[in-house]
Design a protein around this nucleic acid. Structure first.
Lengths: 164, 164
DNA sequence: TTTAGTTGTAACCATATTAGTTACAACTAG
DNA sequence: CTAGTTGTAACTAATATGGTTACAACTAAA
């Protein structure tokens, strides 16, 4: 006799907000353009490396193009870097893909009671601090250029392939 | 002759992700408990200052309670601080309300192609940096205690009421 | 012991973002 | 001209968020 018991486990439970993967996809794209300069980088080719749909890539490319980070050839296809690697910081990419608005990482509740002393003053006091926190985070992104990131990436690629 | 022109402007256009206002609501609640220690802080009373629904307040109070930051009296109602103000950092509140998971502020695309050198290595390289950025942000929150925040808040309240 | 008021939750709802997908017009190089 | 590509619009599914109603469980005070 065979007894098969199937237990369904729902992954649900503790989700929370996250900054859109548009950012990491953008970094991935720029890395590809830098590391394989001779490829014909169509959105389909890039999508194959990122592991997603070509349209997603075209959307992110649209942001990067709008920000002046890449050139995209319509028709014949293919993208190239529009700026030197050491002239692109991670913050540039982060801003390009518009994942978080300037000074608005934190959503502060916006209808506090103005006739309550705390309600009337909490917003400004908090906002000041939260913007500071946001800037600290963005400062780290600003301190790293795509050139540095690609160097680390290249080293890791070499190390790995050497280790095989 | 009267000519009335109504122009509808949709606010839509440049939204982006934000960290839930549960955090700012949590800070608001703790400030109220600290500044008006003699009040009977029912969820309804607090909701009046925050400008929202009592259930929202009870939800956030649930998080704060779970984290050991407040005591909540069921039945008779009312909440009080469970810890000294200088023993509560903004990071404690932020963690309590579970707005962002540890090390997961950034969503990194998770199906890069392992047979592509870039795809196979980008995740680890990026993740390292992004966690660093997240920590920088959280470090700012950790450096501020509720005591400090309430002091700034109190001063601003005094200044304002004196200026009238 | 009753009662009035409160908390803790579940169950909904509307809204918005995100990632993915299909479809197609416009474009471009050969 | 044509094959292949980009740029976009339109749609979907999944999920988070903030708000709301409803109600059982609880507690203090009359």
């Amino acid at each position: 006799m065979n007894l098969v018991v199937t237990i369904m486990v729902t992954t649900k439970g503790c989700y929370a907000m996250q900054i859109s993967s548009r950012f990491s996809v953008g970094v991935h794209i720029l890395s590809l353009l830098a590391i394989n300069p001779n490829e014909h980088h169509t959105s389909e080719w890039i999508a194959g490396s990122v592991g997603t749909n070509p349209v997603i890539i075209r959307r992110v490319l649209g942001y990067l193009k709008k920000a002046g980070l890449v050139h995209v050839r319509a028709g014949s296809g293919g993208s190239t870097l529009a700026r030197e690697l050491d002239e692109i910081t991670l913050l540039d990419v982060y801003r390009a893909v518009e994942v978080v608005e300037e000074g608005k990482l934190f959503h502060v509740h916006d209808q506090p009671n103005p006739s309550c002393p705390v309600g009337a003053n909490i917003e400004t006091v908090l906002q000041l601090l939260l913007v500071k926190a946001q800037h600290a985070m963005e400062g780290v992104l600003e301190a790293v250029t795509m050139k540095e990131l690609v160097e680390v990436l290249s080293n890791q690629i070499k190390t790995k392939s050497a280790g095989e």
